[in-house]
Amino acid sequence: MADQPTALERLIQGILPENPVYRQLLGMCPTLAVTNGIQSALTMAGAVAFVLVCANVVTSLIRNLLKPHLRIVVFTLTIATFVTVADRFLAAYMYQMSKTLGPYIPLIIVNCIIICRCEVCASKQNVWISACDAVGQSIGFGLALASIASVREILGSGMLLGWRVLPAAWPDWVIMVLPPGAFLTLGLLIGGVNWLQSRNVKN
């Protein structure tokens, strides 16, 4: 398989060139829903990273046993198992956060980033490359969520992680914390990324 990307390529690709949120536009549900605060965004990114790495490793281990017409069932089964583990873990050790995130942790099961990585990489390449791929994509997803969440938290409350960033006179833009703020921020940031990309291409 000479044409398949190497481990390092997979790792780097996931962070920016193939960023799951900004370039592939996958995983929009958590991207929009839990980015009203940086803490919940980072917890979500952590949970997704855990599931993604585990699912990619398991899928890669059993890749030679997969039957084409049953592969999606196996992917979903694997993902659902690790999501349930993550969900229970959060409820046991980060109870308040687990309440804040509510249904969005179980919803990682239907997060397209993970099933996409199983299909594109883990079901075709070895464990090491799949793990690197998962780490790269997780970093990319984490960066994307953190960037959106920082914008929303700063503009919406003037604070970041409890620290006042904008002067106290800042009129909190409540809309940024509400769902419309998620769409506005995501749209503008994707626009920004595309603009940078097109400038790079021209140069």
Binding site: L65, K67, L70, V73, V74, L77, T78, T81, T84, V85
Partner: peptide
Amino acid sequence: QAWLVLLLASLFGFILAGV
């Protein structure tokens, strides 16, 4: 045909029960 699915399902079931 589905032996892998069945096997994984029971295995994962045990893991989740343990968790």
